[in-house]
């Protein structure tokens, strides 16, 4: 397995526009278009959430595809597995809507589709090169990178700040 890419969240860049949530819902709709998606029943659902935390923080949140994913081990019907790309996915056919995954996810990232009686969650957009939420974010608050590449960016940025701080 090559180093998988993760979705990193830069909370200080998020302005709370929720473009990501719309892009996610459209990407998971039948029509794959905004105009088609708003007319669909059941309404296409976003797998990414933008919450507000005092005093003025906007926090985009999406499934972390945890290394030792609690949802996957807790699932009582074998519906949750990890793909070869490291993405934890829910097999809708196998899901029985018992909500055990909802009970064990410490991030609250698993949604309940009440019309279909199935759990749903981020699937990292398997058919796209870049997940829809990341591609849509206008402020760069979502970054799709491998961990080493992201860490290298952070180091580069930090070293630049350190140099600036010395006034050289």
């Amino acid at each position: 397995m090559t180093q998988p890419k993760e979705i990193f969240v830069l909370t200080d860049r998020c302005v709370g526009c929720r473009t990501c949530t719309i892009a996610c819902a459209v990407a998971h709709s039948t029509s794959k278009t905004l105009f088609g998606a708003v007319a669909e029943t059941p309404r296409p659902k976003s797998r990414i959430y933008v919450e507000w935390a005092a005093p003025a923080h906007k926090v985009p949140m999406v499934c972390r595809h945890c290394e030792d994913a609690p949802c996957m081990h807790a699932c009582i019907s074998g519906a949750i597995r990890r793909t070869d790309d490291g993405v934890v996915i829910t097999d809708t056919d196998k899901c029985i809507g018992c909500w055990t995954c909802v009970m064990v996810c410490p991030y609250g990232m698993i949604g309940r589709d009440l019309e279909r009686h199935k759990a749903y969650r981020c699937d990292r957009c398997p058919d796209r090169d870049i997940p829809a939420c990341v591609a849509a974010c206008p402020t760069g608050a979502l970054v799709y990178q491998t961990v080493p590449a992201y860490a290298a960016d952070v180091r580069r940025h930090a070293s630049g700040e350190m140099v600036k701080g010395k006034g050289s």
Binding site: T11, Y49, E51
Partner: peptide, 9 residues
């Protein structure tokens, strides 16, 4: 409550 409330931000 959501997870954002628990973040050290």
């Amino acid at each position: 409550l959501h997870y954002g409330h628990l973040l050290p931000i």
